[in-house]
Simulated assay, not measured.
Amino acid sequence: MTARSLSALRRARVIERSNRVRLLALVAVLAGVAVISALSVAIGTREVGLSDILAAFAGRIENTDQAAVAARLPRTVLGLLAGAALGLAGAVMQGVTRNPLADPGILGVNMGASLAVVIGVAWFGIATAQAYIWTAILGAGVAAVFVYAIGSMGRGGATPLKLALAGAASSVAFAALVIAIVLPRNDIAGGIRLWQIGGIGGATFARTAEVVPVLIAGFVLCLLSARRLNALALGDDLAAGLGESVAFARAFAALGAVLLCGATTAICGPIGFLGLVVPHLCRLLVGVDHRWLLPFAALTGAGLLLGADVIGRIIARPAELDVGIVTAFVGAPFFIWVLRHQRVREL
């Protein structure tokens, strides 16, 4: 056997072993999401038994426990969808910008969507779910373009550090504008403040159904961008040399991320840090290949957001902590760790 054939055999064995590990990780993540989903249905301000859970699934609502389970079902579904959307959007944003600090919250995309919704409510009186969704998507898109344009100014173009600084500054500015708009409007202030915390409480299947088509479009665009993101990870010059249109690849993937961020913010409010944490955890499991990373980011994001929601129900009984507060407590220390250990290098 020649040296070349031995080398090819070793590479094949390494790939086979790597795929085996990834499949095991996939099974583990799916099992974890299933367990967390079951806990989300069973745990709340009051715990319920298996008989009441099965009765609620069958559509029989005969007591308070069964009614509680019926209310948790749409909340669980929304948590899974929102977590998958934010986790996937974070992985795509990190791939598009080659920035380990990229996140819908840190880059100002979520707050841009929030500002657009607040302007729509306060100045234009929007009230329907569809109006909220498309207004939030418009705001998320404008914010993403604005932050990227600011981060691209000066020598070196859009470096990770400049993008992070531009996003952080834009987020602060957008938040200040939200406060300035809401303060004189007592008629909308209470609802807007609750929505801005970020949460999935009060979800219904009817409200969630309004956002599902947009989320599906975002999921499809992001997952189809996996090969393009792998090319971009090699650098713009090499990606172009391989025949990839760099501008189109970035725009295609970014559009999917904007749809996911805007739609999720419209229905849940701005939920931060999930898009930062999830891609880093998934790279530890499956590496940097976006064909594996993106699906894992969606699944892991779904599990983490729903898990954070369950924790929020437990630690503040008989009240609840909104999931946006729980993710902030977890995400802020993780952000500091990334800053210290990644040193803001490009991906």
Rank of each mutant, 00 (worst) to 15 (best):
A71F: 14
R207L: 10
L285P: 02
S37A: 15
V92M: 06
M111W: 00
V147G: 00
R250G: 14
L294N: 08
A58Y: 03
G235I: 05
A203N: 04
L306E: 10
W195R: 08
S40F: 08
V27C: 03
I133H: 06
Q342R: 07
L23G: 10
I311C: 03
L238K: 01
M153A: 15
T45S: 15
N99E: 02
R72G: 13
A25V: 00
L276R: 01
V92P: 11
R345F: 04
H341G: 07
R60S: 14
I179K: 09
L23Q: 12
V277L: 01
L26C: 05
A89G: 04
V220M: 05
L78H: 02
A176N: 01
A239P: 02
S245D: 07
V172H: 03
R60T: 15
V96H: 04
N63R: 07
V142M: 08
I271E: 05
I216Y: 01
L23E: 09
F329C: 14
E320D: 09
V246Q: 10
P295M: 00
A91Q: 04
F334R: 11
R343L: 10
A3F: 01
F248G: 10
F296K: 11
V212R: 12
L339Q: 08
V77Y: 05
F124C: 14
Q196D: 02
G120A: 15
T128I: 07
G156L: 12
A189R: 15
T204L: 03
L305C: 13
F57D: 11
T265W: 06
G331E: 13
H290S: 12
F334L: 07
P295T: 02
I15E: 15
R317G: 01
S18A: 04
A149L: 15
P100N: 06
D236L: 07
S225Y: 09
G331V: 10
L54W: 12
G156R: 08
Q130K: 05
I271L: 06
M1S: 11
A298I: 06
